[in-house]
Each structure stands twice: as structure tokens, then as C-alpha cells.
Simulated scan of single mutants.
Amino acid sequence: MTDSLFRPFETHLDRESAREILKSTLIGAEDGELFLERSRSEVLSFDDGRLRTSSFDASEGFGLRAVQGERVGYAHATEISEQAMRRSAGTVRLAVEAGGGPLCAAPPATNR
């Protein structure tokens, strides 16, 4: 594992763009947040002093949440980008506005 610092506003996302997206998403909401996360884990499994398995996992992403009364809108993505945040903001706004909306069409099947 590396000890590199997680700096999403230096590597993935412009701080001011993120702030504006969050601000416009939370208009009319009582509460809300943008949560950025990176997770890394390493597992070494030994049996009788011998290495049997090893694994490494790395993931990162964000969550965007808005609260209005008892309604909560939440969206997340594993891609930290302005485009992904804007897509998530549309979903989150549903909770702040009229409390719902039409469901989007399911993504096309990839296994044929």
C-alpha cells in the first residue's frame, strides 16, 4: 500500500465547481453533505507460517445527500468528477423538490 495523501480537489475535482454543485443541490434543503472517500486494504493470510492468499483492494468515490423534512435524497458514484457530481445532483434534488419523480430507464443489459 502507498501512503499517498488523498487530495481529490487537487487530482479529480475543482473545489469551486464542487462547492457550486453542492450549493445549488441544497437550495431549499434543511441539511446535506458531500462526502469524498478513498479506501485501500491489503490482506495476507497465513496457514502454518506459510502465505496462502493475498489480496489488495482500492476504491474511491463520493456521496451526495440532501434532507428536506422526512425525505432524504442520496446518490453516490465511484468516479470523482464534476460530471458524476452533476448527474448525482439531479437525483438528490428530487427529495428537495416535490418529493419524487419518474424513475429513469434501466441501463442496457451488457451480457447477451
Rank of each mutant, 00 (worst) to 15 (best):
C104W: 10
L103H: 10
R50T: 10
F9W: 10
L64S: 03
R52N: 06
A106T: 07
A29L: 03
L44I: 10
R15A: 12
E79W: 07
R112Q: 13
D47F: 09
S4F: 13
L5M: 12
L34Y: 04
R87L: 10
A18Y: 06
M1W: 03
T91C: 00
R38Q: 14
T110W: 13
G100W: 07
L94W: 01
E70Y: 08
E82Q: 09
G101E: 04
F9M: 08
F46N: 06
S55M: 06
L94R: 11
V92Y: 02
S39W: 07
L103D: 13
K23M: 03
Q83E: 15
H12I: 06
G90Q: 07
L44F: 11
Q83A: 15
A105F: 01
G61K: 08
G99N: 04
N111F: 15
L44V: 08
S4A: 15
S55K: 05
R15W: 06
A75S: 13
R112L: 14
S88F: 02
R93C: 03
R50F: 11
G99S: 07
H76G: 11
V96A: 04
T91N: 00
G61T: 01
S24P: 01
Y74C: 05
A18Q: 02
E82A: 10
L94D: 01
L22G: 02
G90C: 00
A77K: 01
G73D: 09
T25I: 09
R50E: 15
E42H: 11
S55R: 12
D47V: 05
F6S: 10
E16Y: 09
T91D: 00
H12Q: 12
R86P: 04
A29T: 00
E60T: 04
D14K: 07
G101S: 10
R65S: 04
R7I: 01
D47L: 11
E20W: 00
T25G: 00
L5P: 08
G49S: 05
C104M: 13
A66N: 03
A75G: 07
G73L: 10
H76N: 09
E20N: 09
S41T: 04
L13F: 05
D14Q: 06
S54W: 12
A29N: 05
E60S: 11
S45V: 15
A84T: 00
G63H: 11
I21N: 01
Y74I: 04
G49R: 10
S54P: 00
T110K: 10
T78Q: 00
L13C: 08
T78A: 00
E33P: 02
L64W: 03
R87I: 02
A66S: 03
G100D: 04
S41N: 13
E70P: 01
R52M: 08
Q83T: 12
P102H: 12
R7L: 15
A29P: 05
M1R: 12
G61E: 10
G32A: 04
D3E: 15
G61D: 11
P107H: 12
V92W: 01
T25K: 00
G63K: 11
R52I: 02
G69R: 08
F9V: 06
G101A: 07
M85N: 02
I21Q: 06
F35M: 09
R40I: 00
R40L: 10
R71I: 06
R93V: 03
S88I: 07
I21A: 02
R38S: 14
R19V: 00
T53F: 14
E30G: 11
A77H: 12
